[in-house]
């Protein structure tokens, strides 16, 4: 019902003037959805901050950054939550973000020392397949097999770009050859993650590009152990999701408070079973049951933000050339 009342408010009356401070956080759409972390995060933060937390969902990380750039210094956002390492350099280049003073005991597989962006969760990209079918153990074996995969377009999707970086980080200048080898395995490329995952669940492909944590959803929420992530021996590329305070915020203290809350147990316990990623700081209660069944890659791959930004256009050209033949 609240949606209706809200809608009625939009069509008609003006909104009530808030007598408590409001913190506006721009994030991606799946974060704010009823099944994402948003509702619980809002409740937990509002219980302690004496404020209203306004979460605004904007498609995905890339759209989020585009929106903030579009709004520039007079953006309504106080905090942006949901960029990843591929976007950090560009984001910093805009000069819109302010440094932070958060200190946390991160449980990331890598060291984190960025003065502007605070990580809140992370995951490994991986190909998800049906557990009862054998999966190749690296990109070369995949290219040699007749396993059919569906991936996302790096131009419109964050995981798609992640795969580009994965191949680049693992193979460097050999990346074009890998893509040529993969071209007959890729049945199609989709706009976003949802389309690709949907196609996989319908049986259109043997494997789909997703995360090592995807099988945890099926196991925990659906009690279905039939999905597995294929471990690749080149290592798995990481996605680290980050948040930062806007330099133009009119609520700097509240924004700092939110970032500190973000790396606390209250926030971090929400992440695993709503965002289906690893928390950036493992909470005292540990990870939920089921996460222990997930594969742990032997090697973590991650290009630094500067490398990723420098290699991005070249990697995209290689990908386009190899797959457009």
């Amino acid at each position: 019902m609240k949606h209706l009342i809200f809608a009625a408010g939009i069509f008609g009356a003006t909104t009530a003037i808030a007598d408590v401070p409001e913190l506006t956080v721009y994030t991606y759409d799946s974060f704010v959805s009823d099944w994402g972390p948003g509702p619980q995060v809002k409740e937990a933060f509002e219980a302690t901050c004496g404020c209203t937390l306004k979460l605004v969902g904007i498609e995905d990380g890339a759209a989020l950054l585009a929106r903030v750039r579009l709004e520039g210094t007079n953006t309504d956002a106080d905090v942006v939550l949901g960029l990843d390492t591929n976007l950090i350099t560009v984001a910093k280049g805009t000069g819109l973000f302010a440094p932070h003073a958060i200190v946390a005991d991160y449980t990331l597989p890598i060291d984190w020392a960025d003065d502007t962006f605070v990580p809140y969760d992370w995951g490994y990209f991986a190909f998800v397949h049906n557990a009862d079918t054998p999966a190749p153990t690296n990109f070369k074996a995949l290219a040699d097999s007749d396993t059919k995969i569906v991936i996302q377009d790096p131009r419109s999707s964050t995981p798609g770009l992640g795969l580009l970086m994965w191949v680049k980080a693992a193979y460097g200048d050999e990346a074009p050859m890998i893509w040529e080898g993969l071209s007959d395995n890729i049945i199609t490329v989709t706009k976003g993650w949802s389309e690709a995952y949907g196609l996989f669940l319908e049986g259109e492909a043997d494997m789909v590009l997703s995360y090592t944590t995807s099988p945890a959803y099926h196991l925990i929420a659906e009690e279905d152990a039939s999905k597995a992530a294929a471990a690749f021996d080149e290592g798995h590329y990481m996605q680290v999701e980050v948040a930062a305070k806007l330099a133009s915020t009119d609520q700097p203290d509240l924004a700092d408070q939110f970032l500190a809350f973000m790396v606390s147990d209250a926030f971090q316990t929400i992440i695993p079973t709503t965002n289906w990623m690893y928390p950036a700081v493992t909470p005292a209660s540990g990870l939920p049951d089921g996460f222990d069944t997930l594969i742990t890659p032997e090697k973590s791959l991650l290009l630094s933000a500067d490398e990723a930004s420098a290699l991005r256009d070249k990697a995209l050209d290689e990908w386009l050339n190899a797959l457009s033949r």
């Binding site: 759409d29 799946s30 959805s33 099944w35 969902g57 389309e195």
Partner: peptide, 27 residues
């Protein structure tokens, strides 16, 4: 999709959200 916030969604947006949250059955 360009304007929505947490409080409000149309049915097509909600379908995308369900899919984004792995909930293919509900979607």
């Amino acid at each position: 999709a360009l304007f929505a916030d947490a409080e409000m969604a149309t049915l097509p947006l909600q379908i995308y959200r369900l899919m984004g949250a792995y909930r293919m059955q509900d979607a």
